[in-house]
Design a protein around this nucleic acid. Sequence first.
DNA 1: CGTATTTGACCGGCGC
DNA 2: GCGCCGGTCAAATACG
Length: 311
Amino acid sequence: MSDHGFRDFYYHGSAFNNDQDQQSFGGETDSIYRVSPSSVDPPYMNMSFSDCLHTTSMDYGSLEKAFGLSPSSSEVFSSLEGGNRTTRQQVGKEDLGGNTADVIGTPNSSISSSSSEAGCEEDSDKSKKDGGESSKKGNKAKTKGEKKQREPRFAFMTKSEVDHLEDGYRWRKYGQKAVKNSPYPRSYYRCTTQKCTVKKRVERSFQDPSTVITTYEGQHNHPLPTTLRGSAAGLFPPSMLTQSPLGGPSFPPELFMQMPNYHHQMHTQATAGSIFAQNVSPFQQYVHQHHVPDYGLLQDMVPSRFLKHEP
DNA sequence: CGTATTTGACCGGCGC
DNA sequence: GCGCCGGTCAAATACG
């Protein structure tokens, strides 16, 4: 993408333009929509994110409604997963767990997503282990016979220096693996809140090292921790912070922060409080790049250390 | 000393 | 059946 690439908005499907990323990310290639923020805002803001997710993950038609765009005016880089399984086979066996996740672009990043079961549908493919808990070595048997249900996933790409973006929740790293065909490792995080089985994976794009691919899996069954610095708890509309009524994945606050004109939305429907968690580098970048008018306000809301130019 | 991270081993699914 | 691979566990280690 060109200079304006940062403002492009990619929706659904992998925004990876290369095989490497597709493979490492899971090989699930749905479709990619690229639209300008301006065309996205209005319709998008009238929907809950989950609505958008679900809607968009269904078909182009819905997507058009959701984003006010039409396939003709956007670029489709690959086919929808449901309609074209060959894509997956071609790309590779690796996957995001047999599903795709929805990906959304950020102001200064492109987002791709894949969500084959954003609707909480059962995993048709392979079912992975995990099960959320009780999966210890030794007694992993647990749900034998029962098919493990796959959590909805949501992935997005972010231009960021830091691998682990703050999103308001507390995460505990429980693993790291080398990614095939990529010099960058993939890190596995789990929400530290008890009984919350949400997980997320973070990896850096091989083709574009400045891009971080974050994949969320599951839904938070609790509000944002209030202990966060620059806490974002209570500042996001419930629909954004908790599981969606449709059963889709909950949206990571960081995503909103990175969404084009997100600050407008915040001013509109939520208290323009300290919605930003710590280390929101992408947002910071966005702020710097686009000279967000509310910058002054941000300083009031966000600890200066978070706004200062980074590393 | 409690908590978080690191890291090698292990598990289970899948392709061949 | 075997090997590969993604994902997870958990002991060791680091960090506050």
